[in-house]
Design a protein around this nucleic acid. Sequence first.
DNA 1: AACCACTTCAACCGCTTTTGG
DNA 2: CCCAAAAGCGGTTGAAGTGGT
Length: 295
Amino acid sequence: MGRRPCCERKGLKKGPWGPEEDEILINYINKHGHGSWRSLPKLSGLRRCGKSCRLRWTNYLRPDIKRGPFTLDEEKLVIQLHAILGNRWAAIASQLPGRTDNEIKNLWNTHLKKRLLCMGVDPLTHEPFTSGGPTTRPRSSPATRHMAQWESARLEAEARLSKESLFFNSLPTSVKPDPDFFLRLWNSEVGESFRKLNGEAKADCRSPISQASSSTKCGSVSGVTIDVGPIATGSSTPKSSRTEDPIMFDASFSSSSNESEDSSDTALQLLLDFPINNDMSFLEDVDTYATPPQC
DNA sequence: AACCACTTCAACCGCTTTTGG
DNA sequence: CCCAAAAGCGGTTGAAGTGGT
């Protein structure tokens, strides 16, 4: 016996949505909210599967959708996030207000992947190809090495955090890390301040966090309030329907246990070690790479 | 103008995860 | 805790659009 269909197939319309269907869906959701997607088609009078309605709304009709081409900043961000998160399109989309996972997935598959390939960068690993191609051992650039270090350490820290669930369960919900914790930390004011700090004082401040623990020369992170909500990219408007609880990153967060101190130290160390100057310059020089000889 | 190859992206499919009884 | 339903997610498809010959 095959899989039970997600909805009653008989008489349901498939394929592209018409303007009148869009209007019905928009009007219904504006009036009643989407409620249960499964029951929405019946209630609204649409002859569509609930799943199809949800997809149409979330990918196209939602009022906070930002249409139009991706900006350079957005493209850079997608590449950076993909290096960290892989094909977790929904997680990537959550960092780009107004963009959908489907849109980002399409952008990646149609543009960015090809551009990376043309640049000699493996879109899967974000490591440069050697002359032998993608299957040979890649030669890491500092930026891509950091990407890999970041990801492996992030996974390690995540695993540790899951072990520490007892500790975190005792915290208020607003300070509990979620799977995107480190990503949001990186995008936060803390991440930004460290990027700046690390850039300005690299010569005499190898690692601000280690300095912070032993000296005040390079500053301290204690007591910094970070807003870990979705970032506002270059030209995007800072609105979002997905609001995130701001969290306080302060001494109390990391001093409650040695284990958790390790975790937050790991996260901050990662922020510090993350390259300030990701070599994304190729994106800004699109013409140079739009038609490379081998592509 | 007609044909073909290629690209793009909205929509679908089916698997996984979450939720609620 | 278990199970079914619902929602979420990522991979894939195919129609429409575009450019080249």
